[in-house]
């Protein structure tokens, strides 16, 4: 394939650009920077699914609040559940498991901090 720069290339590169019809540039500028309504689309920090998830969570919260304030039966059920939850927490075995979990978490995070500090020094 001949890829040399020849007479034809020279003629091609010497071709003048076409002259746009009068008013084209003005029309472009008006439809872009001249119109505030057409400002570049701003990107949201949230994705579509984030917004759907947040909206759903918000709707559920509102629904629960409405139930809490207006539904006496729900109010009673919630009280019963809260009492059961508190009872569950004060069981000795639950407290033992919570203490063991907390100790392990503290040991892991403190241990890794010490290793990092030693590596830095």
């Amino acid at each position: 394939m001949n890829d040399d720069f020849d007479e034809l290339d020279r003629a091609l590169f010497a071709l003048p650009l076409e002259t746009p019809p009068p008013g084209m540039r003005d029309a472009i500028l008006r439809s872009t920077i001249g119109a505030g309504a057409h400002a570049p689309a701003k990107t949201s920090p949230f994705g579509t699914w984030d917004i759907v998830g947040l909206g759903t969570a918000l709707a559920v919260c509102v629904w629960l609040l409405l139930l809490l304030f207006w539904d006496k039966a729900f109010d009673a059920m919630l009280t019963v559940n809260a009492v059961a939850l508190v009872h569950g927490f004060v069981e000795p075995s639950t407290l033992l498991w919570l203490a063991a979990g907390g100790a392990v978490a503290a040991w892991v995070s403190l241990g890794s901090s010490l290793v990092l500090a030693r590596n830095r020094s």
Binding site: I28, T32, H38, P40, A41
Partner: peptide
């Protein structure tokens, strides 16, 4: 087409 191209470019600058 030229106007459309610049309009689209401006809208999707980001």
């Amino acid at each position: 087409c030229t106007q459309e191209a610049f309009f689209k470019a401006f809208r999707s600058l980001r």
